[in-house]
Amino acid sequence: MKDPVLRISNLQKSYGGRRVLDGVQFDVSAGEFTVVLGPTGAGKTTLLRTIAGLETPDAGNIIMNGADALSLPPAARDVALVFQNFSLYPGKTVRANLEFPLRAPERGLGESDIKDRVAKAASMLHIERLLDRPARQLSGGEMQRVAIGRAIVRRPSLFLMDEPLTNLDAKLREELRVELRELARGLGAPVLWVTHDPSEALSMADRIIVLIAGRILQIGAPENVYFAPASPEVARQLGSPPINLISAVASGDLWRCADGTPICNIKHPAPASALLGIRPEHIAPTGGESPATVEVVENMGPTRVVVARFGSVVLHLLTSRDFSARPGDIIFPRVDGGKIIVWSA
């Protein structure tokens, strides 16, 4: 098997006694699009900065293309980093921004090479018409295109992207998501993309790394992480509305809430008590046995989110727009037993 482009092992980093990275370990292979997903403060940015060489880890190894990267300064690591706040050189034109990394003397690129690379990157990102504008005059979306362009022109062996879409508005974010995913396929070099947005992770990643409080809790394909989360913490990171987590007790095949309200029948070789994870889309609003009182109905366009009190627990249900309910209504939620995730308590 080919060596991975990036191999990280047992990375440790603390700031003033607070552990930011705690034994982080993973590989990134050629051409792979890897998304690091985690809440704010999980250590995602520190991880990227450490790989880029802007931070020095307390312990651990970073091997890049078979060589020890930790002994190299940022400039020699052959990675490109795209910042959340774009970090363009504001007084320079877009062209000058794109040329800046290419004009490093060590690269020894000729004028025609530089021109060629800038033109290619500009056409990939559809920013040709912006080339002679000062970076400061661009909109957020344009700035991020230029920032990504500045990374692409270098043709690095690894792209590091630190929440590149977070500072953009929702519509633009979804547009760029698709476009950048397509672009990444054409680049060849692997991308390590950091985000706190689960839909970004699910829609873009070949592989998701869930990072919480400095530890990797799960690594896997998006569907794997979504449908078979390794722990309730991981389950909570993905999905909107959030997954329902219910402590339950089994008597035979029948599972009940702590207060005795029956939830559903599942054949599961699990212990008698467990934490159940039920995705909101796996609960139908009708057809169940126990009643629930609707508390909130949220219209999301094509879908509705219904929040209902079910015995002592509050359930989130994702229903189609056709299902109409009002706060106070009684519904009979039916849980799809086959899709429940069980963590033994």
Partner: peptide, 12 residues
């Protein structure tokens, strides 16, 4: 971050 970008961009 502009200095950091420059550092990664191999600016002396």
């Amino acid at each position: 971050s502009i200095y950091e970008a420059a550092e990664i961009d191999r600016a002396g």
